[in-house]
Nucleic acid binder design. Structure first.
Length: 301
DNA sequence: CTTTTTCCCTGGACGC
DNA sequence: TGCGTCCAGGGAAAAA
C-alpha cells in the first residue's frame, strides 16, 4: 500500500526528460498510482488525448479502470489499464506528471487530470505542449514501441557487437546516431554529450568510422552515465522535492553538458569546453579530450 | 534507403 | 524599462 501523500508533490521537474528522468517518474508512479482505480478525468486546452479527442469519450474509456504497473520504453511511459487499453505518455521537453490532491487548483500549464479513488489526481502539465498522451490498446502501444525504438541501453541487447553492427557504413555523426531512437532508446541531448565526453569521442565523428576498440567503451560510457543519473533520480535544473524529500541531484554529476557556451574548463585537462551545433542540438565538448582524428576528419568532409 | 532540415511551443536570458 | 532576438530540444514530417 502506498503511504498517504502528505501534500501536493511534483513527480519530476522540467528539464528535458530522458531515460533516467522517465525511469524516475515511472518508479514513483508505480509506488503511488498503480493499483489505484480511476474515477474520472478531464482535460482542457490540450492538443488532445489521441484516441479520444473529446473529454467525455476519454472519461468513459478510463473511468472505473485500475492502473497497473507502468512500463517504460526509452523515453515513453505506458500505463496499462485493466480493460486492455493503455495510456501512452511522452513528456518531450517540458511535460510533467504530477500527483495532487483532487481539490488542488490546476497546476501551471496543466492540461489533463485523471481522478483517482485515493482522493488524488494524476495530472499532466506541459508549458510548451510538446508532450503527448495517447489512449490505445495496450498491445498496440507495445508494438508501436518495438517498431519505433532500438534496444534499451541498460538491457541485454545493447552490446558492443550490436553497436558495431549498427554503426557499420553510417556516415552521420556519432551524436546524431546516438540521438536516433531507432539505434538505441532513451538517449537525449544531455546524456549523449556526457557519454561522448566519457568515451573521448568528438560529437562529429562519423559513426561508421569508429575504430573497433572504441565501440565497447562507448557502449559502457552510455550505460554508465545513465546508471549514475538514475541513481541520482535524474537531472534537475530547478528546485523540487518529492514527498520523500528527494530531488534529482544528477545536475551536479554532469561533466560537460551545457558548459560549452560559457567555455567552462574541462575537469580533466582544464581546456575550455567548446560549443557547436550538431544535429540541430547545442553540443558541448572538450576540444582536447575529444579530438577528431585525421581519418575521421577526412570522412567528415 | 539514409541524412538533413523544418516545425511545433513558450518562457527566460541577453543586447541595445 | 521595454522591445526584439535567440535559445532550449524530442520527434514527426518533409525535403534533399
Amino acid at each position: 500500500m502506498a503511504r498517504e501523500l502528505p501534500v501536493a508533490f511534483q513527480l519530476v521537474t522540467k528539464s528535458m526528460p530522458e531515460l533516467p528522468e522517465v525511469e524516475t517518474v515511472r518508479r514513483i508512479i508505480d509506488r503511488e498510482v498503480s493499483g489505484r482505480t480511476i474515477i474520472g478525468a478531464s482535460f482542457r486546452d490540450f492538443p488532445g488525448v489521441t484516441g479520444a479527442t473529446d473529454p467525455a469519450t476519454f472519461d468513459a474509456l478510463i473511468s472505473g479502470r485500475v492502473i497497473s504497473e507502468p512500463e517504460r520504453y526509452g523515453k515513453y511511459l505506458v500505463l496499462p489499464l485493466d480493460n486492455e487499453l493503455a495510456l501512452l505518455i511522452h513528456l518531450r521537453m517540458t511535460g510533467r506528471l504530477l500527483v495532487l490532491p483532487a481539490a488542488a487548483p490546476p497546476a501551471r500549464f496543466e492540461h489533463l487530470a485523471i481522478h483517482l479513488d485515493t482522493g488524488h489526481d494524476l495530472r499532466f502539465a506541459d508549458q510548451r505542449k510538446f508532450g503527448r498522451v495517447l489512449i490505445l490498446p495496450a498491445n498496440a502501444a507495445r508494438e508501436q514501441m518495438s517498431n519505433l525504438l532500438g534496444p534499451e541501453p541498460l538491457g541485454r541487447d545493447f552490446t558492443a557487437a550490436y553497436l558495431a553492427d549498427r554503426l557499420r557504413g553510417r556516415t552521420t555523426s556519432i551524436k546524431a546516431f546516438l540521438l536516433d531512437q531507432r539505434n538505441v532508446a532513451g538517449l537525449g541531448n544531455i546524456y549523449v554529450d556526457e557519454a561522448l565526453y566519457l568515451a573521448r569521442l568528438h560529437p562529429l565523428t562519423p559513426a561508421g568510422s569508429l575504430a573497433p576498440d572504441r565501440v565497447g567503451p562507448l557502449a559502457r560510457a552510455v550505460r554508465r552515465v545513465l546508471r549514475t543519473a538514475i541513481a541520482n533520480q535524474g537531472t534537475t535544473f530547478s528546485t523540487f522535492e518529492n514527498p520523500y524529500g528527494e530531488r534529482g541531484s544528477n545536475a551536479e554529476a554532469l561533466a560537460v553538458y551545457g558548459k560549452g557556451k560559457t567555455g567552462m574548463p574541462c575537469p580533466r585537462c582544464r581546456t575550455p569546453f567548446t560549443w557547436i551545433r550538431v544535429a540541430g542540438r547545442g553540443t558541448s565538448f572538450c576540444p582536447r579530450c575529444q579530438p577528431l582524428n585525421a581519418i575521421d576528419q577526412s570522412l567528415a568532409e
